[in-house]
């Protein structure tokens, strides 16, 4: 994947040398043409086109920011509307992720989700303990984490 990125940058530089102008729009145009060439000829070498991975990273960052914005509005509603309506509790969540990097990313995303904070990760990296603000929504939180986060993290970090 790094090789594809370097090849793309090299093609952009070759385009700049051909055009004899060293400005930013020429670099961008050369980069886009290099992307097109790699997409057309990459099928032969059998590697996946690396822009797919870049798009998945952008999608994960978008999910990150969206969950945080919803969480902030939930905090706003709770602070104004009444703090005594919460019903906190701690639940256990079994994950299927394996490497420590994936579990760290999952714990960070759970902390930024509305209503949840990661408390502990067990030693064998199998389950997380999550402190939830409203215990009635525990099942929907489990489904939400499984659907939104785990698949996307597996695609980004292999």
């Amino acid at each position: 994947m790094i090789g594809q990125f370097i090849a793309n940058a090299a093609l952009a530089f070759i385009w700049m040398f051909l055009q004899n102008t060293y400005e930013m729009p020429t670099f961008v145009a050369g980069y886009l043409l290099g992307m097109l060439m790699l997409f057309l000829f990459g099928r032969k070498t059998g590697q996946r086109f690396y822009m797919v991975k870049v798009w998945k990273i952008v999608k994960l960052a978008g999910i990150f920011i969206r969950e945080m914005i919803i969480a902030c509005f939930q905090v706003l509603v709770l602070v104004i509307g009444g703090v005594k309506t919460i019903n906190p509790g701690i639940i256990e969540y079994q994950t299927e992720l394996e490497t420590p990097m994936q579990i760290t990313l999952l714990a960070n995303m759970i902390t930024l989700t509305p209503g949840t904070i990661t408390l502990e990760v067990t030693d064998d990296n199998k389950s997380l303990f999550i402190h939830v603000l409203k215990i009635d929504s525990a099942d929907s939180i489990r489904e939400g984490i499984k659907r939104n986060f785990e698949d996307n993290i597996k695609e980004v970090l292999a």
């Binding site: 919460i86 019903n87 906190p88 509790g89 701690i90 639940i91 256990e92 408390l119 502990e120 067990t122 303990f129 215990i135």
Partner: peptide, 11 residues
């Protein structure tokens, strides 16, 4: 006082 469900203490 309101916390009703604690699995971490069992663990």
């Amino acid at each position: 006082i309101g916390t009703t469900y604690d699995e971490l203490s069992a663990y």
